[in-house]
Amino acid sequence: MSALPWWRDRRRLGWLIQLAVGLVVLLAIALLLGNLERNLTRAGLRLSFTWLNDPAGFDIAETLLPYTAQSSYAMGLLAGFVNTLRVVVVGLVLATVLGVASGAASLSRNPLLAGVMRTYVEVVRNVPLLLQLVFWYFAVFLALPAAAEALRLPGLTLAKSGVFLGPVSLVNGELSGGWRLSLELAALLTGLVVYSGAFIAEVVRGGIISVPRGQWEAAASLGLKPTTTLREVVLPQALRVIVPGLNSQYISLAKNSSLAVAIGYPDLYAVAETTLNQTGRGIEVFLILLTVYLGLDLGISLLMNRLAHLVRIRER
């Protein structure tokens, strides 16, 4: 028996390849870190996080926290994170409502309704989100009329000074009362909800289609109404398909909220950019951003996995 040459020995070759790849990766990392170390030292910016306690010195247009220009950078970043969280949480709820409604409606027997919903999905998915956001902000919300000629819908008042939920009154040419959203927040929420809603609609549609026709027919022959069938028979089964799809859409929404910077809403990324401009602490700011967004994704995934566990089919 002749010995196998080493280049045909799968096991040995495998180890050799891993050794080579490992060495190259280690070398690259060492090289980059070495450069980083040298360059940071030269710029007098050695890695540290103590600057987070320094006063930030910039204002944040809207915040839920007691933040002022004298507060620390850490507080500013936290205020930005709370703003991000606000958009993500409200956006998730609204996008889910819109997505489920339009996903179900796109399967309607009424061809006009189904057609409108299909058109909505096709238009929104083929236009970049950032373009949609700047359109909503600059072309729609900034073009709103002044307070005196505000657009009044039931429970919703739209004017240049903001979007008001609930009853409002006009006092001295200013709108007051209700719950005010800034135009930036309103535009960001509208854009994100309309965009994510279209993707969620496709997820929901796919989930409903995945339920066999026989289930509809069986429910119909039991005398259930179509809406009852959808709610009691089809959706519980469709959810198994829908929930994992929703998970990735929710994560996309969380990541997409960072586009807020383009329309001036002070989310985490926008505050981080200002922080970088003032401190020059690029590495630290990037590490903070990466950690927070990865944490946000992980949090959404954990919640959705719990949900997937809840909606699983329980066999008798």
Partner: peptide
């Protein structure tokens, strides 16, 4: 896939200068 693209572009614009020789 976990990070928003804009943060990666941020890395490219602001940090690459530190990662390569001056």
């Amino acid at each position: 896939r976990g990070a928003p693209l804009i943060t990666l572009l941020f890395l490219g614009q602001n940090l690459v200068g530190f990662l390569v020789p001056g």
